[in-house]
Simulated scan of single mutants.
Amino acid sequence: MDDIDRKLISALRHDARASLSDLAMDLGVSRTTVRGRIERLRQRGDIVGFTVVLQEETKTDPVRGLMLIGIEGRGTERIIRQLHGLKAVRAIHSTNGRWDLILELGTQTLDELDEVLGQIRRLDGVSTSETNLLLSTKKAG
């Protein structure tokens, strides 16, 4: 992957619906070059798909937290399936070390967050947890 490929990917991340002409103009290459590079990046698996981001998904939840969960036994997959059904669960990460899962949570109020924490703690197999509120974001992915 060269500098043009990286700039193309950056431009597509900003606007995946940009026309080949606009991308070519921004990168200083021909439309044919842009088309060929996109196709090559897709065939190699560097680009695995395109997606739609809804406006509501760009809004930050007023109350956000990270919940670290310890699971007893072999119920991790079952618990992950149950967590997928909770609206406040924004992401589920498996990890190593003391905790089995790290959840990113988002709600409108502290009361809602408290309710979600209670629901998660009551799941069969959740043995321990720790939650930290996120106060501000200094850099987002």
Rank of each mutant, 00 (worst) to 15 (best):
Q119L: 02
K139Y: 10
N96E: 11
G49H: 02
T107W: 10
G85R: 14
D100A: 07
K59W: 06
E56K: 11
R17P: 00
R42M: 09
S30N: 04
G141S: 04
R17W: 02
T32C: 08
V116H: 11
L113C: 03
K139W: 14
I9A: 14
V48P: 03
V126L: 04
T32S: 15
G73D: 03
K138L: 12
V53G: 00
A11L: 15
G45V: 06
T128L: 10
K59C: 06
G106V: 08
Q43E: 12
D100S: 14
L133R: 15
Q43F: 00
I120Q: 05
D3E: 14
L83K: 01
R78L: 01
S129R: 03
L86A: 07
Q43D: 08
N96R: 09
T137Q: 14
R122Q: 12
D15M: 06
R78Q: 04
K138R: 13
R37P: 02
H84K: 15
S19G: 15
L68Q: 04
E57P: 02
G70C: 00
T51G: 11
L123A: 02
L66V: 03
P62V: 11
T33L: 11
K138P: 00
V89T: 05
G45T: 03
E77L: 07
E72L: 07
I102V: 15
T109L: 07
K87M: 05
T76A: 14
V48E: 04
V52P: 00
A91G: 01
G28F: 02
D5M: 06
G125H: 11
D114M: 09
I71Q: 14
D61V: 03
A88R: 07
V116I: 15
L8E: 13
I79W: 10
Q55P: 01
L86T: 00
E112L: 03
R17E: 10
Q55V: 10
G97V: 09
D2E: 12
V53M: 03
Q82W: 07
I92Q: 10
T131K: 12
L68W: 11
R6F: 02
G141E: 04
L113Q: 01
V89G: 13
F50E: 13
R40L: 12
Q55A: 13
G85T: 03
D46G: 00
W99A: 02
T131Y: 05
T51A: 15
P62A: 13
V63H: 01
D15P: 01
T109S: 08
M67N: 02
G75F: 02
E112V: 08
L83T: 00
R13M: 13
R31W: 07
Q108V: 02
D61R: 08
L8H: 12
G118A: 13
E39I: 10
V63E: 05
H93G: 03
L66I: 05
G106K: 05
D46E: 03
A24Q: 07
T128E: 07
T128C: 01
G125Q: 04
A18V: 00
R35C: 08
V52C: 05
A11F: 09
I92A: 04
R98E: 11
R122M: 12
G73S: 04
S30E: 14
D26Q: 12
T95W: 00
N96K: 09
V34I: 07
E56C: 11
E72S: 13
A16N: 09
R42F: 12
T32N: 13
I79N: 03
L113A: 07
H84L: 15
E77S: 12
S129E: 09
G75M: 01
T131W: 02
G73R: 01
D100H: 11
G125I: 00
D22I: 06
K59H: 07
S129Q: 12
A140P: 01
